[in-house]
């Protein structure tokens, strides 16, 4: 038994430098990648920087964040071609996951920590995946699944009339979607649309999801459950609306969405 332990320790000690050597080139590779570029490549890469900055803006990142990110990169003497790659990565991540509030500060902190190249790009991706505020504005494409608004996450928004928070593609009207008394959720957005009997009984469930599939923001995380908690009230509101209004009136907001 002792012999096994000794062998294992010896093997471990022997292998440690090998592992260290194997890991080193991987982390250095990203730093070295920039140096391997010829001046021509560097110049061409730099040319892309304003274009990538625009891409990031169009993806939905705030101007302050773009500027802060650029400033952080410049202050840290990140070459323009590398900065262009970073912004490209950030733009992709922003399109996929939405913008993050602290992009500039985040880049600054990662640069301070010594991250460069692919490592920094990976960190940016992870940050957006973890803290991105829903789907971004995108470049007029909107969310591919056609689901709810990008930022309709919190319970505070459940049941409230949707104030300009429609999907980025502009398909859904931002206003006038809630029931007339303003108590219920905007149609297609509230949890009662998913609710079993109440909404369905009113004949809303099917239309709320809409033929274009822009209905409820399904699968948006635990916050949405908070909205479900409001369903009974909303049902009441819907019930009221059903009493007060004719069926044609209900149909109008649906028609608007198309």
């Amino acid at each position: 038994m002792r012999q096994w332990i000794i062998y294992t320790l010896a093997l471990g000690l022997g292998a440690a430098p090998l592992v260290a050597h194997a890991a080193a080139p991987a982390s250095e590779a990203s730093d070295a990648a920039g140096d391997r570029r010829t001046p021509n490549e560097r110049i061409r890469g730099a040319l892309a920087l304003p274009l990538k900055a625009q891409e990031l803006r169009k993806a939905g990142a705030g101007e302050a964040e773009v500027k802060a990110g650029l400033k952080a990169a410049k202050d840290k003497k990140v070459r323009a071609d590398d900065a262009a790659e970073l912004l490209e990565e950030a733009a992709k991540a922003t399109r996929e996951h939405g913008p993050v509030d602290n992009f500039g500060a985040f880049v600054q902190s990662k640069l301070d920590a010594g991250l460069r190249g692919r490592d920094l790009a990976a960190a940016i991706r992870e940050e957006h995946a973890a803290r991105g505020k829903g789907k971004a504005k995108g470049d007029g494409k909107g969310p591919p699944d056609g689901k709810g608004p990008p930022d309709g996450k919190g319970p505070a928004e459940a049941g409230a009339p949707d104030e300009g928070k429609g999907p980025p593609d502009g398909k859904g009207p931002p206003d006038g979607k809630g029931p007339p008394d303003g108590k219920g959720p905007p149609d297609g957005k509230g949890s009662d649309d998913r609710g079993p009997e109440g909404a369905a009984a009113e004949g809303k469930a099917a239309s709320d999801r809409g033929p274009e599939g822009k209905g409820p923001p399904d699968g948006k995380g635990p916050e949405d459950k908070g909205a479900e908690g409001k369903a009974p009230e909303n049902k009441g509101a819907d019930g009221k609306a059903a009493d007060d209004k004719k069926p044609e009136d209900k149909g109008k907001p649906e028609a608007k969405r198309k």
Partner: peptide, 12 residues
């Protein structure tokens, strides 16, 4: 050139 690209990129 890089400075110029940074400057342009920073101004929408």
């Amino acid at each position: 050139w890089e400075d110029l690209m940074y400057e342009i990129a920073g101004d929408p």
